[in-house]
Design a protein around this nucleic acid. Structure first.
Lengths: 147, 147
DNA sequence: CTTGTCTTTCAGGCAACCTTAGCAATTATG
DNA sequence: CATAATTGCTAAGGTTGCCTGAAAGACAAG
């Protein structure tokens, strides 16, 4: 139907859809990158990796920061424990609680994620230029602060 | 912890996260706007409204374009039929098929969506300026075309 | 100690998809 | 032009990713 190159996309999509597509496209690349580096996981697991602290975090803390219920976070942690990325240690300061801590494999997976994201940032810069990337971040920052 | 105003956000978030947050923030506003205008619906329903053609569309077409299975699309259409937005008419050109067509209420809901989106585009322009908005769209277009 | 409050877990539910397995209508083929 | 393959839809049931409710163990305050 549409014979144009990219005008057809730009002309038909509203800005919100474009943001959604860009996010979906690049977000997938993050998970793919980490999985491709040999650390299988699901998208939802990144919520844990993103929040967990070096010395370990409590389940309820992780849940609160990821904005899900402790029960849901418990399931995520079960899965990551199964995969060997985290372990549950007793919290010395409160015997009710357990600390979720990264295993060596877990730390390697986090590092792989960091590298993947860095790579994607580089790719973005290659596509829209250093100035474009800086401008994009500035515009998004302003949008997030005021919308 | 972070005492700065918006630098803390910009400094900590990668570009992909920023895109995700912006999409989530504005996407919600679309649904809220349409629901607020008196057309109750769920976010997933917009997949139908966005794809349906004026003269009606087949279930399988809608499913293919929304990238879900015909069964899942069938459920969406069931719900929208229940809400009075669409009806299933026999397709004169193929007696296996039915055409999903918008009712008068459905057309009004689509129009409400169009107006809501237009309002959000205006709001974006207010926040980042006409030039900023244009630049944002140009950068996103390039990103979508090449990433 | 008793009462109340955390931290975590167990059980069950719901939404939004999916797969599998039909049936009915249409199109292709020997 | 009969029959085989394909297409359009639907019915039934499974999976995923959350949720709420309820309960058990550990701690804090009176």
């Amino acid at each position: 139907m549409s014979t144009d190159r990219k005008e057809s996309v730009a002309a038909r999509l509203n800005t919100v859809s474009m943001l959604g597509q860009a996010y979906s496209l690049l977000g997938f690349q993050i998970v793919n990158g980490v999985v491709g580096a040999g650390y299988p996981q699901k998208p939802k697991h990144s919520a844990v990796f993103a929040q967990i602290e070096p010395q370990g975090s409590r389940l309820t803390d992780l849940a609160r920061r990821a904005n899900i219920t402790p029960q849901a976070m418990g399931e995520l942690v079960d899965e990551l424990e199964e995969l060997g990325y985290v372990s549950r240690e007793p919290d010395p300061s409160d015997r009710r609680a357990k600390l979720i801590v990264l295993t060596a494999t877990g730390r390697a997976a986090v590092e792989a994620g960091r590298l993947t994201i860095a790579g994607i940032e580089v790719r973005i810069t290659e596509i829209i230029g250093e100035n474009g990337h800086k401008t994009l971040r500035r515009l998004l920052t302003k949008l997030l602060a005021e919308a």
